[in-house]
Design a protein around this nucleic acid. Structure first.
Lengths: 240, 240
DNA sequence: TATGCACGTCAATGGTGTTGACGTAAGGTC
DNA sequence: GACCTTACGTCAACACCATTGACGTGCATA
């Protein structure tokens, strides 16, 4: 196979497409993100991306080895953006809450890329920086090392797992997404008290609660339980 | 459009395919599950499934409206298998722990299918039964309805999110999995204390802890925090 | 034994990612 | 300004994919 991808650094000959666009790795990543944002995950295909760029679809392969490489580039971009503007306050619980919610929110903005990114360890600079920051928050707060590590692990995995989980719902084709919402009302709303008494009794509450992500509350529970494990634990109820 | 799917209950005329197979919803689900397990999630296509069944690929559409409906059936099958043999003990915390760990374990046994299925709401019988059971555990334990619903939501989403997260790691091709573990040691094990002091200080602990899933500990934290929200809350430390 | 229709089959449609060949025009050199 | 070299945009083609409508066989029922 001919090596068709030239590393971004050594690119020199930029040549406009028939429609006048001048391609670059950066332009492609930004266009792809915009495409996903505006028209949903399903809109991201090589042909549509080519159309959006104003270029032949296969021009993409001069910049990325395949679509997976493109999606990893998107993912890297996301991780970077999630940390922009964040600074520690010194309150470990508020800091972890902010980091968790930011990561979650940023991933939700690009569900398709999030689905791929959340399950992978990249070892790239953005990722190591977040890890360092979380450990810093926990150790500075006075958690002993072994406990800090365990809490870090649960916290990070939970943030990424929920990010992927909620992204998956957003990344669903519109038809399937509508169907799922419908399933909740049609199926769960009509289960008879005889066979499913607890669902029947709480259905309105259920329907209301399931509309939003379970992550914020799960995060609060994790933080509250972690607080009770602190060597100088004080009364620190959920949500504090 | 002609309605082509006949509900499983009212099926009567079974007719062997050219290759002699007698199709059924159950056979299709089991074959699909086997296909995904043996050859990965990418192997699940209508054509390949037809070949594995010994039938014309489009015969599938006599049993499922589309591939998404099949996927939901797979998901529900996994949920069902996770519950086989479970019974309530009356100790809400032990019961939820058991349900969570069972779900997680069952999905890990079928990583490829778990990846596809863990994000979906099926509305099928196995799913509604778990939902009913979890709500029963919480309400019987004395949690008020609104709290029971919120805890249920966080608990279920956490279990499924972690199931998908950990399944993703298992589902990677062995080569890629080894490579990722290697990258982790190479990158995180060599970060200089100057730029990443907290990672450098805790690396041995980190490396040991990250080998296993973060779910069991995250689940304990959730249960411990939920216990403090109980109207008759007693001292109930993590892991009790 | 007769009959209606369930369902397995086939052909076709319009999508997808990806590859190899080709030629044009851009950059460097003189 | 002329000449090479080659990067890279384009094109055609391939092998898949899910899904559809039409068709007729042969089964279950009456």
């Amino acid at each position: 196979m001919v090596e068709r991808v030239v590393p971004e650094g050594s690119r020199q000959r930029r040549r406009p497409t028939k429609q006048g666009a001048v391609l670059s790795e950066r332009l492609i990543v930004e266009t792809a993100l915009r495409l996903v944002e505006q028209h949903g995950a399903a809109a991201l295909s090589v042909r549509r991306l080519g159309a959006a760029l104003g270029a032949d679809p296969t021009a993409l392969y001069r910049y990325f080895r395949n679509t997976d490489a493109l999606l990893l580039a998107l993912a890297d971009e996301l991780i970077g953006r999630a940390q922009e503007g964040w600074t520690a306050t010194g309150d470990w619980r508020a800091d972890l809450r902010a980091i968790g919610l930011r990561l979650h929110a940023r991933y939700q903005a690009h569900p398709q890329a999030a689905l791929l990114a959340a399950h992978r360890t990249t070892g790239r600079t953005h990722e190591t920086r977040v890890v360092e920051r979380i450990l810093a928050v926990l150790r500075t707060a006075g958690f002993p090392d072994d406990l800090a590590v365990r809490i870090y692990h649960a916290f990070v995995d939970q943030a990424l797992a929920f990010a992927a989980q909620d992204a998956a719902a957003l990344a669903l084709p519109p038809a399937a997404r509508e169907k799922e919402a419908e399933v909740w009302h049609e199926v769960y709303g009509r289960l008879p008290p005889g066979t499913h008494p607890h669902i029947a009794a709480t259905f309105p509450l259920l329907a209301a609660d399931m509309r939003d992500s379970g992550y914020p509350f799960a995060l609060e529970l994790l933080l509250a339980a972690a607080a009770t494990l602190h060597p100088r634990a004080q009364a620190a109820p959920v949500g504090e």
